[in-house]
Design a binder for these strands. Structure first.
Lengths: 347, 347
DNA sequence: TTGAAAGCGTTACCAA
DNA sequence: TTGGTAACGCTTTCAA
């Protein structure tokens, strides 16, 4: 990277801004004759002129880059299709619009400190709603548009949120289980999601759903790999069905059942969350709550893009919705069934 | 983003460069007394000063950002753990070093034109390459370090490549199949990978391996979802075993077999490539060539980082290796077995 | 020890 | 239709 716009201008015998006008279509009031324009293009090609993106961004206050903040920054799970789906939704919105996607560690780790608005991004998609005071404060101080995913409506002031209807979502499996005859149901989440906004929202939604249905519900924070399911045999455990926070977690529950020789669904019913392709590959196939991850990510990103546009053209953005809520579905497969006849059916 | 370094300087009653020196440790010859330093830090905090990353990058000619180019990029597959593994390897190298990862569409689509070195990246990791004249030309003109993944050694002049030993890799399944008694074997790839350097390398490696083993080999470019396997019943088809370019593709072959009522491995043996966790979830479990994707990605990225370092400190980089080759493994699971007795065994 | 000035590469504004 | 000048925010160089 050595050829600057001035080199081209000099070689073509014109001014730098003439080059800028011809190559980038910038500066309306600058008119260049077609002959000169052609000359400029020719010289630029010969000199292998490559416009400096940094300088243009600095000058234009527009980077065409979006920052994406993940909650689990340490690694993408090999088995959980959540991240691929999320990225697909984001990319499908971003790339056609000519935007670049950036994943950066500072944002992931110490995002509270306003590092978001260091000029690199036109906007930020926040997939990490854990709501420490710090992180919310960081968002409030942000000078660029921010959109949150997996944040219940109203959880961050003034920040548009894109989230599933967790209350509705958890009624579906609970109703299904109650119809099958279950009376004692557990909702399992891992230590990580215990702390996220959506983890808490789903836990509350689950408790609400079980109360409405008149059955016993309990929220369980487990590491299934280390958990002892021995006493769940023959429905004798505290629950006859478990709803997991994610398909991935449900898969690990299935594996734990296999380890302990527990038959699913005969001795224990298990339900996942996401209804990803993963559910079709397990034995038994996993009953699961369907969540349109890719669509949510896509629409959240589209929303972010339009926020950026209205931000930069000083258009009033109040017409845009502040919270989008998505309905979940429920896909019944093979991992749910009636509780064992031996289960103590104390209601 | 409004507070500039000058605002801070003014408010603290010092010069801009004193602020720069204190906050960024820049400028050796500038010494600031501890009292003033403390004042500057305090003022910066109060004013919520956020250094502009763009301006610093422009000035320092260092962006701390790596571009990742997928030349052939469709979407992150939900089922294929390839992308998560790849990203894990990259991130594990990048984030601890304080680098940002950027995925950008222009690079993906028209990467030939040298858009690589528009100042945004300190280096580029090039994945799934092909070798049109254009793209090689683009690399040659690049003024920043480039490292290629999935490129056979020597395929791009002067560009370090990180690739598995495809020749060795394809001997493993071929030998396994021949030992089981197979005489007619197909290698299946999709339309996308037909065009990539690694797709071609594996096809050639496959043909070589079958020739060495004295059996019939054929390269097949298929869309398994649309392909008719009807005539493969009872080993009567042109091949009694198929090796797929990826686990994902093998999974789709398995699904096609199910559709046509073809029993695997009794009527047809199927082998994948990656030996990902996916192989454990299929029925039957998928025999597969193991490829250390995450490790390759990690080491390629580490290499890129050291290239950047030596580039920027003008150190001679010739000591660094130009090609790294990784051995593959072979995991035998349930999807391979002897060919049907009814198979015509014309050698 | 501190400050002023120049410049990284680009583009908007104004004058010719 | 053109070209000069200034500025985006930062840091290095040189002079005080």
């Amino acid at each position: 990277m050595k050829t600057t716009i001035r080199n081209v201008a000099e070689a073509a015998g014109v001014s730098a801004m003439a080059v800028s006008a011809v190559l980038h279509g910038t500066g309306r009031n600058v008119k260049v004759s077609e002959a000169k324009a052609e000359l400029i293009r020719k010289v630029a090609r010969e000199l292998r002129y490559q416009p400096n993106h940094l300088a243009r961004s600095l000058r234009n206050r527009k980077t065409n880059t979006i920052g994406v903040v993940f909650q689990h920054f340490d690694r993408f799970s090999d088995e959980n299709p959540y991240y691929p789906q999320l990225l697909n939704g984001i990319i499908a919105a971003l790339f056609p619009a000519g935007y670049t996607l950036a994943l950066c560690p500072q944002l992931v780790q110490r995002s509270g400190e306003g590092a978001i608005s260091d000029g690199r991004f036109d906007g930020v998609l926040w997939c990490r709603p854990d709501f420490t005071e710090q992180s919310v404060e960081g968002l409030r101080n942000s000078s660029i548009p921010v959109v949150m995913m997996h944040a219940p409506p109203g959880s961050a002031p003034g920040v548009p949120t894109f989230c599933v209807d967790n209350d509705g979502a958890l009624r579906l499996p609970v109703r299904h289980l109650v119809e099958l005859g279950h009376k004692r149901i557990g909702f399992v989440l891992d230590h990580l999601n215990e702390k996220t906004a959506e983890g808490r929202a789903r836990s509350e939604a689950f408790m609400l759903a079980t109360q409405e249905a008149g059955v016993i519900g309990e929220v369980l924070v487990w590491d299934p790999d280390a958990h002892d399911l021995e006493n769940y045999r023959l429905g004798m455990g505290p629950h006859t069905a478990l709803i997991a926070y994610s398909d991935f977690l449900a898969g690990r529950l299935l594996a734990a059942c296999r380890r302990f020789g527990l038959r699913v669904p005969h001795e224990l019913s298990i339900i996942g969350f996401d209804s990803s392709s993963f559910c079709e590959t397990t034995t038994p196939k996993l009953t699961s709550i369907y969540q349109p991850v890719e669509r949510i990510a896509h629409e959240a990103t589209m929303h972010l893009l339009s926020l950026i546009q209205s931000d930069q053209s000083n258009v009033d953005a109040d017409a845009l919705p502040l919270a989008s809520i998505y309905d979940c579905g429920f896909d019944i497969r093979e991992s749910t069934g009636p509780p064992p006849a031996t289960a103590k059916n104390s209601s």
